[in-house]
Amino acid sequence: MAQTIAPPAAGAVTPAPIPLKAIAPWALFVGVLMLVLLYFIGAEQGATSLLSGTEVHEWVHDGRHLLGFPCH
């Protein structure tokens, strides 16, 4: 079964690619957010604990085991 690709219609405008300057702030934001999430799942309630108590540990306990972090 052969498929042919129709040429674009006359006057059709192709969208311009998104410039890197528009993507960079969002990529930085997502990267920092992921690092914070990784910290809370992997290291909180340890030697570098930012919050006292065990609430954070209990909220992310199963996620630690799922990702392979030891916690007890």
Rank of each mutant, 00 (worst) to 15 (best):
H72P: 15
G53C: 08
S49G: 06
E55M: 06
F29Y: 10
P25T: 03
P7L: 15
V36A: 04
D62M: 02
L33T: 05
G31P: 00
V13F: 06
H72L: 13
T4M: 05
I5K: 15
V36S: 01
T48S: 11
P8Q: 10
H61T: 01
E58P: 00
A12Y: 09
P15C: 06
F40P: 00
V13N: 05
R64W: 00
Y39L: 04
G31K: 05
Q3G: 08
P70F: 00
L51S: 09
P7N: 15
P15S: 06
I5P: 03
A27M: 14
V56H: 09
M1V: 06
L67W: 05
A16L: 13
E58K: 13
G63L: 14
L66K: 07
P19C: 06
G53K: 12
S52Y: 13
K21R: 10
G63A: 08
F29S: 05
M1Q: 05
Q45K: 14
A10E: 04
A43S: 05
L66A: 11
G42R: 01
T54P: 04
Q3Y: 09
A27T: 10
L35E: 13
I23K: 15
A16C: 03
C71L: 06
A9R: 11
V30G: 06
A27Q: 13
T4L: 09
V56Q: 09
A10G: 00
P7I: 09
G31W: 07
A24S: 11
S49D: 07
P8L: 14
L38W: 15
P19E: 11
S49L: 02
A10K: 03
L38C: 11
E44W: 00
G68N: 02
F29C: 03
A6N: 07
K21I: 08
G42W: 02
G11L: 05
H72Y: 12
T4G: 09
S52R: 13
L38D: 14
A6S: 11
L35I: 11
L37V: 07
E55R: 10
A12R: 10
V13Q: 14
A43C: 02
A6P: 02
